[in-house]
């Protein structure tokens, strides 16, 4: 007997087949292509491309930027989500819209704002030059642009969960004598830890892969301000396909590992498994 909501067999086959085809074509095929191209001439050239000093510098820089941007966004995202989910205040809707801003504006603009602010001809440019501080076309600029672009990930992951959980548990902690910090550490944080980790990983994947905004503020100085995505572009434009794909494959691998970790967490992160 078929359940009343089931479609006939041919329709199901068509829908499932169509979805599988789309997924394969648009998600799996490009990924496979990256790895195939990277290893087309074997491991040696790929390894060579990766151990090139400029490539190593790009990997280092990418990890450094992510290592700064992700913790900053974790704190900022937590604070924003906490305010929005647990309190009603004037300007709440505005804050919510601001959190979405980096998602809605083009990454080019996200990069350009920093140039306009801190660039040589920007608002604060002369002052920065006087004090010999370099922000744009240097690591601080890359970090700022990355923070801006990846800000929504953590806040957006946390807000629905924290809203659903409400304030009752925190209030209960307060009536039991817990201080604000104790409440946060023992009640709020543990109740959102899986969502937080998942948001952090998503933020990290994006921080390492960000291209547009970073490209605007980078200045493309090899070995100094090139992150992995920028390095891939440069190599590709110079027809060094093997090298470009090798670095791209490493970047894709980092993203895959991050996503894998996130999936594992989500599967293992249901409260029931914590009982053991």
């Amino acid at each position: 007997m078929t359940p009343p909501t089931a479609e006939p067999g041919w329709a199901r086959a068509l829908l499932i087949g169509g979805a599988a085809l789309l997924l394969g074509l648009f998600l799996l095929l490009p990924l496979a292509a990256v790895f195939t191209e990277a290893l087309r001439r074997g491991w040696a050239p790929a390894w060579q491309a990766l151990s090139d000093p400029d490539a190593v510098a790009a990997v280092r820089l990418t990890l450094l930027v992510a290592a700064i941007a992700v913790p900053v966004n974790t704190l900022g995202g937590l604070a924003a989500a906490w305010c929005i989910a647990k309190f009603r205040f004037s300007g709440r809707a505005l804050l919510l819209a601001l959190i979405d801003l980096p998602f809605s504006v083009s990454p080019v603009i996200s990069g350009l704002v920093w140039v306009l602010l801190f660039g040589a001809h920007g608002w604060l440019g002369p002052w920065l030059q006087e004090h010999d501080i370099q922000i744009v076309f240097a690591v601080p600029g890359l970090v700022l642009a990355t923070i801006f672009v990846t800000f929504p990930f953590i806040a957006r992951t946390l807000i629905p969960l924290m809203q659903e959980q409400g304030r009752a548990a925190e209030e209960a902690a307060a009536t039991l004598g817990a201080s604000g910090w104790q409440t946060f550490r023992r009640v709020t944080l543990p109740e959102i830890r899986w969502a937080l980790l998942s948001g952090v990983l998503l933020c990290n994947a994006r921080a390492m892969g960000e291209f547009g905004a970073v490209s605007v503020v980078s200045g493309h100085i090899r070995g100094e301000t090139n992150t992995m995505p920028l390095h891939v572009e440069i190599l590709y434009n110079e027809y060094q396909f093997a090298g470009a794909f090798a670095v791209a494959a490493l970047l894709a691998l980092l993203a895959l590992v991050t996503l894998g970790a996130k999936t594992l967490l989500e599967r293992g992160g249901t409260p029931r498994s914590l009982a053991a």
Partner: peptide
């Protein structure tokens, strides 16, 4: 709704 700490 009791507001028990879910993770404890």
């Amino acid at each position: 709704n009791y507001a028990l700490f879910r993770h404890m």
